[in-house]
Amino acid sequence: MKAPAAPPPPGRTGVGAGHGRDALFFADDGFTAQITDSSPIGLDQLRPAAQTAGLVERLTTTVHDTRHGTRSTALHGRRGRR
């Protein structure tokens, strides 16, 4: 009889994530990570690192700027306004 699979680790959320180094660490440990920052520049720099590490599907970024609303960007290419 096969042992039951362990439940997946819970997700992590980061606010003010900058370049997303912490999110990469958690994703590499098996967590999913949803991170938010007011600047898209740092979050966009996360994309190549996540692709190289094979972690794109575990990370979702959100650019939140209270002056212009919220724009969600998943690392695997989906972009859109909420």
Rank of each mutant, 00 (worst) to 15 (best):
M1P: 07
M1C: 07
M1Y: 12
A3F: 15
A3Y: 14
P4V: 12
P4F: 06
P4D: 06
A5F: 10
A6M: 13
A6C: 09
P7T: 10
P7W: 09
P8Y: 07
P8N: 09
P8M: 12
P9W: 11
P9V: 02
P9I: 06
P10C: 09
G11Q: 14
R12I: 13
G14I: 03
G14H: 06
G14R: 03
V15C: 05
G16I: 02
G16V: 03
G16N: 05
A17M: 03
G18W: 01
G18M: 04
G18Y: 00
H19T: 04
H19N: 08
H19L: 05
G20N: 00
G20W: 02
G20S: 02
R21C: 08
D22P: 01
D22T: 04
A23V: 04
L24A: 04
L24C: 04
F25N: 09
F25R: 11
F26G: 04
F26M: 12
A27P: 05
A27D: 05
D28H: 15
D28E: 15
D29R: 15
D29H: 15
G30W: 06
G30R: 12
F31S: 11
A33S: 09
Q34K: 14
Q34C: 14
Q34H: 14
I35W: 00
S39W: 08
I41R: 07
G42D: 01
L43I: 02
D44K: 06
D44W: 05
D44H: 06
Q45T: 04
Q45N: 11
L46W: 00
R47L: 06
P48T: 04
A49R: 08
A50M: 03
A50K: 02
Q51K: 12
Q51W: 08
Q51M: 09
Q51F: 09
T52W: 11
T52S: 14
T52E: 13
T52V: 13
G54V: 02
G54Q: 02
L55N: 05
L55F: 03
L55R: 01
L55D: 03
V56N: 03
V56E: 12
R58L: 08
R58N: 07
L59F: 06
L59D: 00
L59W: 00
L59K: 02
L59P: 00
T60W: 08
T60M: 10
T60F: 10
T60P: 02
T60V: 12
T61F: 02
T61N: 00
T62F: 03
V63S: 02
V63Y: 04
V63C: 10
H64E: 13
H64F: 13
H64R: 15
H64A: 15
D65C: 14
T66H: 13
T66D: 13
H68C: 11
G69W: 08
T70Y: 11
R71W: 08
R71H: 13
R71P: 03
T73W: 10
A74W: 06
A74K: 07
A74M: 07
L75T: 01
L75Q: 01
L75K: 01
H76S: 14
H76N: 15
H76F: 09
G77L: 02
G77P: 00
R78K: 12
R78H: 15
R78A: 13
R78G: 11
G80K: 06
G80P: 04
G80Y: 08
R81Q: 10
R81D: 13
R82T: 14
R82S: 10
